[in-house]
Amino acid sequence: MHPLIQKYKLDSIFLPLVAIVITCVFWYAIAGKSVVTEKVDDFGDKVKITKREGLSADLPTPVETWTASKPYIVEPFAKRGELDQGILRFTWMSLVLVAQGYLIALVIGTPVGFFLGLSKQFTKAFDPIIQVLRPVSPLAWLPLGMILFSGVKIVNADGRTTFGASDAAALFTIAICAMWPTVMNTAVGVRAVPVDYLNVAKVLKLSKWKTLWKVLVPATLPYMFTGFRLSLGIAWLVIVAVEMLTGRPGVGGFLWQQYNANSYAHIILCILTIGVIGYVLDRLMSVVEGRFKTA
């Protein structure tokens, strides 16, 4: 085999595998193990008592996690009940909600970013508000969303609410938390448009509209997409908190419900799923982002 390919295999397959194995061993070491002891009870009968022992007694071992999670992974789209569905079914619900909130974030965030980048006065006026709102946690936004949209109620033909206050609040929370990277990056991008390009627009006497679409937007696109990628990451981060608080079905909701049901193995399944999906989303976005990197 070519030495380069060998090196590649070593670096990108072997080394991560080693790290995964080490992590699993560490996990196994601290996880609780079932210990069965026999005891004679008060009536003189022998009974078996199962007790969990270990550093973190309630933490399931990797093998237990796998056994408990198997039905959810092998049949990822099964629907056994409202709160007992395949993991990808839950993920899909979460993704749909994230997509909606994320779209709202982009649709609002990008123009705001442009205004900030283009107008010094606008920046001066709104920068303090933005800087104060930016670090606020989703846990704080959600109740506000509930209050803001308490009147929202869309009812379908059978009288069931299809879109209520909690849905609106969920979207609001995702959108407002995910918006900031898009706003900031777009603004920075607009300010970083080379003067030369703007001079070209001036010399050619392009109209405002044409300058925007032919010069400003293309020159800002790389920055915008960096913002879009970071925003998507945050939207996905926020979803769990939102689902926990509103009790919507989805990975986050499932996680919380499994915690309350003492099925700890499923929590780990959810965490891993959330992580993998987040990683995949980030990779997808950076592929798109790479496309828009101009010379």
Partner: peptide, 29 residues
């Protein structure tokens, strides 16, 4: 008082728009 197409300026650093092809750059003008 302001730039205009009656005075064609060739910039010191070319200043072509990198996202447009040769044809599109010229067509823009």
């Amino acid at each position: 008082t302001e730039p205009g197409p009656d005075r064609g300026l060739v910039f010191q650093n070319y200043s072509l728009l990198p996202w447009l092809t040769v044809e599109e750059n010229i067509a823009l003008a």
